[in-house]
Write a protein that binds this DNA or RNA. Sequence first.
DNA 1: ATGGTCGGCCCCCGA
Length: 268
Amino acid sequence: MPFTVATWNINSVRLRMPIVERLLKEHAPDVLCLQETKVPDELFPEKAFRKAGYEHILFHGQKGYHGVATVARRPIELVEKRRFCEIDDSRHLSVRVQAGGKSVLVHNFYVPAGGDEPDPEINRKFRHKLDFVQEMNGVPASADESSASILVGDLNIAPQEHDVWSHKQLLNVVSHTPVETTNFEAMRKAGGWVDLMRLNVPAEQKLYTWWSYRAKDWEASNRGRRLDHVWSSANLLPDFTGYEILQAARGWQKPSDHVPVMAKFDLD
DNA sequence: ATGGTCGGCCCCCGA
């Protein structure tokens, strides 16, 4: 049995419970990291997760905005709910889980979207996004012979040319501007993180995890972006056996604009 | 074609 970790920005966990249950039933990840839960902790739908076999539930939520949660079929231990940029947004949660004799630290992130104007001088949300990514330098891929790290989430940046439907047309669009993509890749590499979704995929192959709600037909226009990511420490590479972007979920009833990404490891 | 659609929630903000 492989060890699987999935990430999904579900844009309101309460509204999206039916399709979250579908994911759990059809794909049964060992650990599921959710972003944009948009629910305060006291109203988190724990019962539905327990009923689906996910009895281990940790959340870091707030009213109305943001919010992350990590649920699992096996025990998870809370490590940290980190605060970034000295702002009390719920954007991070890390947990420890045992898999294949290793202790695995799983970070769940929701990076700020950054607003519309890609100029930190006039757009405080873009400034916040840049500062947040800078501060992620303080989250390295810690690892030794008995421990490893995984970092997943909606990181709201599509770093590579073929992580967007049109590199040229998105160069000045928040999520794909050079200042974002350059700093993002520098932070990832400095932290010792491996981009698992690109590891065995040619650079010229398009990869998307998000399709706008605003398209008339998201599938026909296919103007996607790879905003959701799965990273790991280098010592997990021998155990990494592949991943799947569950694109079909974009067409499920009342979908999120993001789809789940699920990575598999030969650990149990 | 410089629009368009969502979700939460207090009549607008963030994505």
